[in-house]
C-alpha cells in the first residue's frame, strides 16, 4: 500500500533520539550513579558533619569551604544534602519496588480473571485513582500517623493503583494479541502461555514506568516531610532541609535553593532515563503495534 509507505518512512525517521538526547541520557546516568554512591559513602564527597551544630558558622554564603553554604545552625548544607540522599533514594526506590510488585500482581490478576473479578478489581483501582497520588499519600499518613516508615508506606500505596492499571491494560491487550490466540490453537498450556507471552510483555512497560516513578516517589516523599509528616529534625532529609530554608529566604536563599536543585536534577534524570528506555523499547517492540492490513 503505497499511501502507507510514505507515512511509514516519515514515522520511522522521527523517533530516533538525536545526539542531544543520547548525551542527556548519559548525563542522567552519571548523575544518578554519583548520587547512589553519595548515598552509600557520603564521606567520599565531604568531610563535614551533617548534624553537628556550629553557631559561629551560621548562615554562611556558599564558598569553596561550604559549596552550598551553611544553615541557621552552622551545618554544612552540601553535607546535609549528600547524607540526605540516603533517605530520599531509599524511599524512592523502596516505594517504587513495592508498588511495582504489588501493581503487577493486582493488574495481572485483574486482567486474567473473568468478568466479575476484573470488574471488582478495576472498579477499585478506578476509585482509588480518582484521588491524586499526593493526596492519597496524605490520607494514608492521616490514617497510619506520621513518621519515616509511614512515609515509605504512604508513597508506595499512593502509586500502586497506577502500576496496577497499566499492568491490567497491558495484560488485556496482550491477552487478545494474535500470538496468544495462536498459542492457544497450537495447544500450548495456559500457564506456559501466560509465563511465555503475557508476563514478559507486561513487565517491560512497568519497568519503564518504574524508572520514571522513582523520581515521582522522591518528590512526594520530600513534599510530605516538608510538611513535617516524615522524619523529625535534625535528620538530614531533603524535604526537611527545604523546610528549614523556608524561614531564611530573605537572608540565606542557599539553604532552600540548592537542595531543591538536587531534587529537580534527580527527577529530571530518572525521567530522562525512563523516556530513553521507552523509546528503545518502542523501537524493539515495533512488531507489537498492530498495523492494519489492506482492509481495516
Amino acid at each position: 500500500m503505497s499511501a502507507l509507505t510514505a507515512t511509514k518512512a516519515l514515522a520511522k525517521r522521527m523517533p530516533t533520539p538525536g545526539r542531544g538526547a543520547t548525551v542527556g541520557f548519559w548525563a542522567a546516568v552519571v548523575f544518578l550513579a554519583a548520587l547512589v554512591l553519595a548515598a552509600l559513602l557520603p564521606g567520599l564527597f565531604t568531610a563535614a558533619d551533617p548534624v553537628r551544630t556550629d553557631i559561629g558558622a551560621a548562615l554562611l554564603a556558599p564558598s569553596p569551604a561550604h559549596p552550598f553554604g551553611t544553615d541557621q545552625a552552622g551545618r554544612d548544607v552540601f553535607a546535609r544534602v549528600l547524607y540526605g540522599s540516603r533517605y530520599s533514594l531509599m524511599i524512592g526506590f523502596g516505594a517504587t519496588l513495592i508498588a511495582l510488585v504489588a501493581g503487577l500482581m493486582i493488574g495481572a490478576i485483574a486482567g486474567l480473571s473473568r468478568r466479575v473479578g476484573d470488574g471488582v478489581l478495576s472498579r477499585a483501582i478506578e476509585i482509588i485513582m480518582a484521588f491524586p497520588e499526593f493526596l492519597l499519600a496524605l490520607i494514608v499518613i492521616a490514617i497510619i500517623g506520621p513518621g519515616e516508615t509511614s512515609l515509605l508506606v504512604a508513597v508506595a500505596i499512593a502509586v500502586v493503583p497506577a502500576y496496577a492499571r497499566v499492568a491490567r491494560v497491558q495484560t488485556l491487550v496482550v491477552k487478545r494479541a494474535g500470538y496468544v490466540e495462536a498459542a492457544r490453537t497450537l495447544g500450548v498450556s495456559p500457564v506456559l502461555t501466560v509465563l511465555r507471552h503475557i508476563v514478559p510483555h507486561t513487565i517491560g512497560p512497568l519497568l519503564v514506568m518504574a524508572t520514571m516513578g522513582v523520581g515521582t516517589a522522591i518528590t512526594a516523599a520530600a513534599g510530605l516531610s516538608f510538611l513535617g509528616l516524615g522524619p523529625k529534625p535534625p535528620t538530614p532529609e531533603w524535604g526537611l532541609i527545604l523546610s528549614d530554608g523556608r524561614n531564611f529566604l530573605a537572608t540565606a536563599w542557599w539553604i532552600a535553593v540548592f537542595p531543591g536543585l538536587v531534587i529537580t536534577a534527580t527527577v529530571v534524570s530518572t525521567s530522562t532515563i525512563g523516556r530513553h528506555l521507552r523509546l528503545r523499547g518502542a523501537g524493539r517492540g515495533a512488531g507489537a503495534t498492530h498495523r492494519a492490513g489492506r482492509r481495516p
Binding site: G178, Y179, A182, H197, P200, G287, A288, R291
Partner: peptide, 9 residues
Amino acid sequence: DSVSAFDPR
C-alpha cells in the same frame, strides 16, 4: 494479520 500472529520478541 501476520504481524500480530507472532510474539514480537
